[in-house]
Structure formats: structure tokens, C-alpha cells
Write a protein that binds this DNA or RNA. Sequence first.
DNA 1: TTGACATGCAAGTAAATTATTGCATATATT
DNA 2: AATATATGCAATAATTTACTTGCATGTCAA
Lengths: 102, 102
Amino acid sequence: MDRVFRALANPTRRRLLDSLRTRNGETLGGLCADLDMTRQAVTQHLRSLEDANLVSTIRSGREKLHYLNPVPLQEIYDRWIHKYELNQLQFLTDLKKIAGGD
Amino acid sequence: MDRVFRALANPTRRRLLDSLRTRNGETLGGLCADLDMTRQAVTQHLRSLEDANLVSTIRSGREKLHYLNPVPLQEIYDRWIHKYELNQLQFLTDLKKIAGGD
DNA sequence: TTGACATGCAAGTAAATTATTGCATATATT
DNA sequence: AATATATGCAATAATTTACTTGCATGTCAA
């Protein structure tokens, strides 16, 4: 889970995920075209996303195709963010009790 | 939004949020007691959480009280993770078409 | 097979992050 | 007033991150 949070911490990597959302299966070259940095830099960002299991790749001839895997994002939500939802927070229900609300 | 993602990228900061979830309003000293690092390091983590608007503080006498603000987490979900939910992804419906499923 | 294209690999640099130490300030307690 | 407690501020060191340059390898197409 730590790898996922760390992968999401970078705007270039979030942008890569957004690209794959609309152009799933995109090649490395295609993803590079969007970004103003070297191909090697993009490769390293993609590796970080692969390590977090947010992207998987397959080789097709001389091209590398990138596929989005949304499952870790679901897990971030289900196992983490969910607990922080307003109506899940105990202190708020405590506040309601104190305030006498119903 | 970038500040929120960056704040969440560190396990100590996620742990601080978890502490505040159960002990909202905790003092700096109280939060330090959980962690095996200097008070100054914890202060810097809390500043990062404040910059992301995930924590707000008020001074009470010689103590500083920390309160959790879950709203930025809601926004992360609503404006970002939500778009990646499995049934939101066009490529999956495309896959279904190709596979001929209904 | 030769040349162009797509990607892989590795070392190096600059900047950001994480954590430290040392000292200052403000509040509470006796 | 004197002491202990809680926090603030600043400089520094170690590590990680983000990105670069240079060269190697593998694949397609004429």
C-alpha cells in the first residue's frame, strides 16, 4: 500500500494514469509524447507505477504496451479513505450526542 | 490536491492521521509519544499535514491541539479515485464488446 | 542486410525529503 | 521567583527522488 501512496505523490505519474484511462494499452513512445521530459525519465515513472501494481505491461514486437490496473486505487479507498469519511468518524457522532442532535 | 497526495505519501504522516482519527484534538506531545523520532521531526510532519489542510490546530495554553479534517480525503476520492472505479472505465466496456459479453 | 525506430540499461547530478541537534520562548506549577 | 513542561525556530546531515546524458540491444521495413 505504501508503494501506491508513493506512486500517486507525483503529478507526472498521476498524469500518466490519466493518459492510460483514456488510451489504455498505449506505448511508451505514445506516453512520452504528452510529457516534456526524456523518455528515460518517463520509463522510471512507469516503473514506479508498475511497482505499485497500478500499471502492467506487455511487450509487442519492438513496442511496450501499458495497461491501467485500477484495483490498488480501489483498495486505497476501501481500506483507507473509507475510514475517514465524515459519517464514519466516531468523534462526529460523539459531537452529535453532546450537542443533543438526532 | 498535490499537497494532499504528497502528505499521504509518508507512513508516519498516515499514522498521525490514524492517531487523530481515534484521538482527535490530541496535543503535539501526545502524538509524539506514539512515534520513535524526535518531537521536531513530528512537528515537521504535522506541518506537512497542515499545509495539505488535513489537520488544523489551535493553541490552548502551552499546548497545541490537533484536529483532523477529512474533507481533502473526500475530495481525493470524489475528484480523482472515483474516475478510476472499475465500472467507470471505458476500456472495460470496450473489452466486453470485443468479448461479446452482455 | 542496412538503416531507422522503439526500448533497455547505467551512471551521474540537482533538488526535495526526512530526520537530527541545539537553543529560544512561552506557559504552568510550586 | 524559580523550575519544569510544552512548543517554536534554525541549521545541518543523510537519504531519496526526479531527471539527465550516453550508449547498447532488439525489431521492423526497404
